[in-house]
Design a protein around this nucleic acid. Structure first.
Lengths: 287, 287
DNA sequence: AGTTGATTGGAATAAATATTCCATTTATAC
DNA sequence: GTATAAATGGAATATTTATTCCAATCAACT
């Protein structure tokens, strides 16, 4: 056997290429390694062998057959790969400054907010049902106009969504209660419109009322909220349950913002596609 | 020494608490460990000791003094932490689903937004000057009221900040141009107030005007913008330059939101501390 | 300055881990 | 079915790594 692989990626490629020529036990071992790279990076030969249901010498024999001088040499590739996956060094610098008291409390707080918001963004896409996204987009695409409702803290998301929809050429109206006129604004909803409501516990009464009204009039409703048990949920055609970051009892709106961005832009993309298809159809007629 | 720490976080806390009582060499060792957790997770005692410029037995002595039965037991916490830092498995699942065509475009787009927003949040704290944060907080703390100005897209951040400030009992007024009355709203600023303006390229004219007016009246101004060359920057006492996520030419506001959250809550914390000190002073008088 | 206690570093020892070797088993070819 | 080659597993061996021990040094106290 010649020069061993120099990176995890090269190793993967080599194993894939040589797999068919490996014996049954070596195949089993190779498969385990690729399936559990983190384990291979950190555990001992004995431990890995135990988990892979092979003997330690099998692991070593495999490594040798792949061109390495022993298992440890191969393990280094797994370790390098593991290190390559780690978050960036700014976080370490931060830990040091924090421990030595160089960092003011306000910057500590900024780190906390940044971390907390990052964490919810990491979880968000796997918590949103893809079918719900598609269904909400169906609703918005069909609607002549979208009325966006959000009170108090949620007003921020509602205003952003109204702005974003306008930028993808979807008529959008912000239900803002100007002059105390929530009721009047909602009465302007036509039967071809849809309502998007953003509301979190303790659920503004105006938002609940808006959903009730729209529901009675048979309008499609999309709700962004924090629980499937939210009082708004039972009126909704689509419910997005969103978890928001919380620091010092103060809740953020980063996840909702990200979700509304997605809804607006995805809608824009859809509309572009629909227009493109219609243009293509016209060409056929002319041809 | 009692029960050892059960997590890396606990270990950090313990080291910080005990640091002053450690000998010089143990302090040096502890500092190295917190500075290089990845190295500590993966390398041998001998290697780590060499890099830390201490002897192997020093490392072991430190571990024992922290309650561990040897270095290896402590190293496990570093390894667990390292594993905890690895990207979430949902990202691997996502890659698989994307490759197999199971994921609709809208969910792909949600991933893109989530990723892009996470990236800017990761960078944000190291790009904000801690002194600027403290200075802005000084300004806000002294101000009788804070006027918050943001037009169009930025309106969202301004409305959120106004909400947040109200929740830490800081008088805040949203300059929203209701009825076209930006000028009138700004004239309501008293000389004891401060102005916070959020504005990004192409810089709403109203926002620029607001800064000019406040500047001419000698009011302190805090600006959140996207460049030190922003036309608002020259009027400002404090400038926060914030990089926002951009997906399909559409810009987010996640970083600005995170920053305003921090400003509001940090101000709240400060005010609480100031009130606590005044209470403490009263006790002295009574005693 | 002398004494006592704490800390330190490095050699010796213990423990853990990786690897080699080879008898046995399995697979392949004739 | 027999002979040969390849694969396997586990005990023995080698190597690496962690830990202990203690003489020397340093710091604190009287």
């Amino acid at each position: 056997m010649s020069q061993p692989p120099q990176s995890y990626r090269e190793l993967e490629i080599l194993i894939t290429a040589e797999y068919a020529t490996l014996s049954k036990r070596l195949q089993q071992t190779a498969r385990f390694m690729l399936d559990h790279p983190q384990e291979v990076a950190l555990a001992t030969v004995a431990k890995i062998a135990e988990q892979a249901d092979v003997t330690p010498s099998t692991l070593i024999r495999l490594a040798n057959s792949l061109g390495f001088k022993g298992f440890s040499e191969m393990q280094q590739l797994f370790r390098s790969r593991l290190v390559d996956e780690l978050p960036n060094y700014t976080e370490r610098i931060r830990a040091v400054r924090s421990a030595t008291g160089e960092t003011p409390d306000s910057t500590q707080l900024l780190w906390e907010f940044a971390d907390a918001n990052r964490a919810v963004l990491e979880q968000l896409p796997s918590r949103i049902n893809p079918e719900s996204l598609e269904k909400a987009l169906d609703i918005f695409e069909k609607a002549h106009a979208i009325h966006v409702m959000g009170a108090r803290r949620s007003f921020m998301v509602a205003s952003y969504m109204t702005y974003a929809l306008a930028h993808v050429d979807k008529p959008a109206l912000l239900v803002n209660g100007l002059g105390g006129m929530y009721g009047e604004q909602l009465r302007a909803m036509s039967q071809h419109d849809a309502l998007l409501t953003i509301s979190f516990s303790p659920y503004a009464e105006e938002s609940q009322k808006a959903c009730e009204d729209a529901h009675q009039r048979g309008l499609p409703i999309v709700v962004i909220t924090d629980s499937n048990l939210s009082p708004l949920a039972r009126f909704a055609d689509v419910v997005f349950v969103v978890n928001e970051a919380e620091v010092k009892s103060f809740r953020s709106l980063t996840a909702s913002l990200c979700l509304t961005q997605t809804l607006a832009i995805a809608l824009g993309v859809r509309q572009d596609k629909t227009r493109d298809k219609e243009k293509g159809h016209d060409k056929k007629r002319k041809a």
